[in-house]
């Protein structure tokens, strides 16, 4: 029997709401808004309330998938990165850099979002960068 609450910050958008994740025997079982956090003062939106669900969800992608003959197939990171790099290069050469767009994520750090922006602008040469928090 091991129940604990872990104080953390919501990863769904940039507001930075404080919340407690409830952990029972190593599994996330619930979310509670932090009453003492000065940002959200004990309140959450519908996404924040359910944030414990995605972390250990069985449908969560943990390995790269490549569509082969119409079927998504598990691949190694090396294979996936090589494939993506070569296809991006082909598409850029055939159709120009503005035929490519990048979608960043709210669930990663500022630094990772910076890197994808830099990659889009400096390496690929497009300003087509957007973010999943534009809801």
């Amino acid at each position: 029997m091991d129940y604990k609450t872990v104080l953390t910050t919501c990863a769904y958008c940039g507001c930075g709401c404080g919340l407690y994740l409830e952990v029972l025997d190593g599994r996330l079982i619930g979310t509670l808004p932090s009453k003492t956090n000065p940002i959200n003062e004990g309140k959450l939106c519908v996404k924040g309330w359910n944030i414990h669900e995605f972390v250990q969800h069985p449908s969560r992608l943990t390995k790269p998938l490549i569509r082969k003959n119409g079927t998504l197939t598990e691949a190694s990171w090396d294979e996936a990165l090589d494939y993506t790099a070569s296809r991006l290069k082909e598409i850029k050469e055939a159709h120009g850099s503005h035929s490519i767009a990048f979608l960043a994520s709210a669930k990663v750090t500022n630094e990772e979002n910076y890197v994808i922006m830099k990659f889009a602008r400096a390496a690929v040469g497009t300003n087509n960068v957007d973010h999943c928090a534009r809801l």
Partner: peptide, 8 residues
């Protein structure tokens, strides 16, 4: 610290 939350 300044945070108050449930605890077993």
């Amino acid at each position: 610290g300044t945070d108050i939350g449930p605890h077993l």
